[in-house]
């Protein structure tokens, strides 16, 4: 149990995908305008990461030992199609859940954060549950970064940001500052 918790915390705050690895920046910049949409995006991220983690574990355990050169291409293909199939199933079974997550799913199935998660999980040789803990930690970290950025940006609507820094420029600057602040967690739990 203990190592699952450390994997989770490490992926969430110490090696936060957005603020430490700079992955998944497209949703981070694009969908962080409002807290409400940011939360939805985070939930969709957690969902896709979970699917991706299960797929990656399956591929790693049963397919890749026989064909190691297929790693990257099989991850992309299998994860994208698995998410697509799940999305169609949700649409059929639970229209409410589909409306909550649906529009974001196609946006992130081929996101670098998802691929990185699957890749790292395979490289570190995580078993099924460690992989899930890693995926949920990464998802929680992405959600945390998205919500923080969204609440800051909602605040910025009242600020007189100078013309040169308006729009994405100030978002990148804030992302840099957040990343500086999260450097404080560097080395946490490593001893």
């Amino acid at each position: 149990m203990g190592d699952l918790f450390w994997i989770f915390i490490s992926a969430m705050v110490v090696n936060n995908f957005t603020l430490f690895y700079f992955l998944g920046l497209c949703p981070f910049m694009g969908v962080s305008g409002r807290v409400y949409t940011a939360l939805r995006m985070g939930a969709a991220n957690i969902f896709v990461l979970t699917v991706a983690s299960i797929c990656a574990w399956f591929l790693n355990a049963f397919v890749l030992p026989y064909a190691p050169y297929l790693k990257l291409i099989s991850f992309i293909l299998v994860i994208a199609s698995a998410v697509q199939i799940t999305e169609m199933t949700i649409k059929k079974l639970s229209p409410a859940l589909f409306r909550a997550l649906g529009i974001y799913l196609p946006l992130i199935t081929t996101n670098c954060a998802i691929l990185f998660m699957a890749w790292t999980q395979a490289n570190r040789g995580y078993n099924f549950f460690q992989g899930l803990a890693f995926a949920w930690g990464a998802g929680a970290g992405l959600t945390l970064a998205l919500v923080l950025m969204a609440s800051i940006r909602e605040n910025l609507l009242f600020s007189k940001v100078p013309e040169i820094a308006k729009g994405n420029a100030i978002v990148f600057i804030i992302a840099g500052i957040l990343s500086l602040a999260f450097m404080g967690f560097a080395g946490l739990l490593s001893t």
């Binding site: 923080l148 800051i152 560097a186």
Partner: peptide
């Protein structure tokens, strides 16, 4: 943590939480 001191980072991180 890996650093002996964390007051600066703690305040900066909580600054980010202030709007929320």
């Amino acid at each position: 943590g890996g650093l002996p001191e964390g007051v600066m980072y703690s305040i900066l991180i909580m600054n980010a939480f202030v709007p929320y």
